[in-house]
Amino acid sequence: MSRLYVARNPRVAARSLDGEMMIMSGRDSTLFTLNKTATILWQSADGTTPLDEIVEHRICQEFEVEPAEALHDAETLARELASHEIIQISEEPIPQPNPAAGESR
């Protein structure tokens, strides 16, 4: 089974404020507020850590959830975030041009 890699899109603006992660698309100025799971996914999306490892080490540690179910939900979430161009997804590691790009200030 192929692994999925996720990377933050450096072309969006992101800020964490009082525990809330907000992201604005640079393309069309749409504002997104991420829930807790999406925030973990966003913060872990470094392009090199596979999604299943993010789920195992970050999401399952945070929530009481079965790993298989959590991975299924995380893949759905990742594809949704990718559809809004908040993150990129690939079956190969995603090189990041600037490691700091896209991180919240």
């Binding site: 072309r11 603006a13 800020r15 404020l17 525990g19 604005m24 640079g26 393309r27 100025s29 200030r105």
Partner: peptide, 30 residues
């Protein structure tokens, strides 16, 4: 604070299709 930022962003006038300026506006609101 999150609601304050969201509400301010919703009320800003901005017209440009320009990623750099959108990011500037976003961070300015925060």
């Amino acid at each position: 604070p999150g609601e304050a930022a969201r509400s301010l962003l919703a009320n800003l006038l901005f017209f440009a299709e320009d990623e750099e300026l959108v990011q500037s506006m976003f961070h300015s609101a925060f």
